[in-house]
């Protein structure tokens, strides 16, 4: 019955994000926040492990500039037992180093655990950093890009999706596992679960509670500029019968598509 910590990030919903027409900067205020997709897969996997092994705690941790309690309630409604969170405005400029440091302190508040589960990357930055950094901080083995996970008494076996195929690997517990979208489909909480979740504890911390100061939130990597990439395509729409379309396409491919670089 492993106890599991799941790291969850609140990010902007990138699918709603539109660039400012002139500055090309993303208009964050016009998009909603959500839990990063992969992190929900991590939570779902933790819940499935608990169900399969008949027990164990599932603890959610989250750090950000202003962690939205409603989203944390959703996590608890899905089935996490408790949440440990910290909000600090300086987390808006956090890099992978700061994020992992703060999360590691939160995790240290979460009691004993056997496994840390994270999404393989975040929806907004896709940095792929949090899992391996936590593994290094806690001096643990890390299994990444996991599409299937089996857990036994003191060890885990994971199917890692790599470029050249699936790597089946094992390590001992405690460990860090980062998961991809393929591993499962996150559940949607029922009304009953949402109601039950209102009684579950959310522990909110201040920086000092974690033994941190504002200096600890200074990133090693700073954002200088963020702009939408504009690739202008010709956007010619072709319509007609399949026969006509195939002819036009053949022309385009022969005349333009196959030209050598």
């Amino acid at each position: 019955m492993p106890d599991i910590v799941v790291c969850l990030k609140q990010t902007v919903d990138i699918y709603q994000l539109k660039p400012h027409p002139e500055t090309l900067e993303p208009q964050f205020s016009q998009a909603q926040s959500k839990i990063s997709d992969f992190d929900l897969n991590a939570l779902e996997e933790a819940l499935r492990i608990r169900e399969k092994h008949g027990g164990g705690r599932v603890v959610a941790v989250s750090a950000g500039p202003s962690v939205n309690q409603l989203l944390i309630r959703e996590i608890l409604a899905m089935g996490a037992d408790e949440a440990h969170i910290i909000s600090h405005p300086l987390m808006a400029s956090a890099d992978g180093y700061v994020t992992a440091k703060v999360l590691s302190k939160l995790i240290s508040k979460a009691g004993r655990w056997d496994l840390i589960l994270c999404g393989e990357a975040s929806l907004d930055n896709s940095d792929y950093q949090t899992g391996p950094r936590l593994a290094e901080i806690f001096h643990l083995p890390h299994l990444a890009y996991v599409s299937r996970l089996e857990i036994s008494e003191r060890s885990i076996r994971a199917w890692k999706v790599m470029e050249d195929g699936v790597h089946v690997a094992e390590c001992s517990l405690p460990a860090v596992v980062t998961v991809g979208l393929e591993i499962n489909t996150p559940r949607l909480p029922s009304l009953l679960m949402i109601r039950a979740a209102s009684k579950k504890p959310i522990h909110e911390y201040k920086l000092a509670d974690l033994g941190l100061g504002e200096d600890d939130l200074k990133p090693y990597v700073q954002l200088l500029e963020l702009k939408a990439l504009k690739v202008e395509r010709r956007r010619q729409k072709l319509e007609g019968t399949p026969e006509e379309l195939a002819s036009k396409l053949a022309d385009i491919i022969v005349e333009e598509g196959l030209a050598r670089r």
């Binding site: 890099d95 992978g96 180093y97 992992a100 940095d127 792929y128 950093q129 899992g131 391996p132 950094r133 593994a135 290094e136 901080i137 890390h142 990444a144 890009y145 790599m162 470029e163 090693y220 990597v221």
Partner: peptide, 21 residues
């Protein structure tokens, strides 16, 4: 690569350097 992204954050953490992928 996926391999590089598994090791990079650890290297940065050990050396306390800045990291970007």
């Amino acid at each position: 690569t996926k391999y590089g992204r598994e090791i990079g954050p650890r290297v940065a953490e050990i050396l306390q350097g800045s990291y970007s992928t």
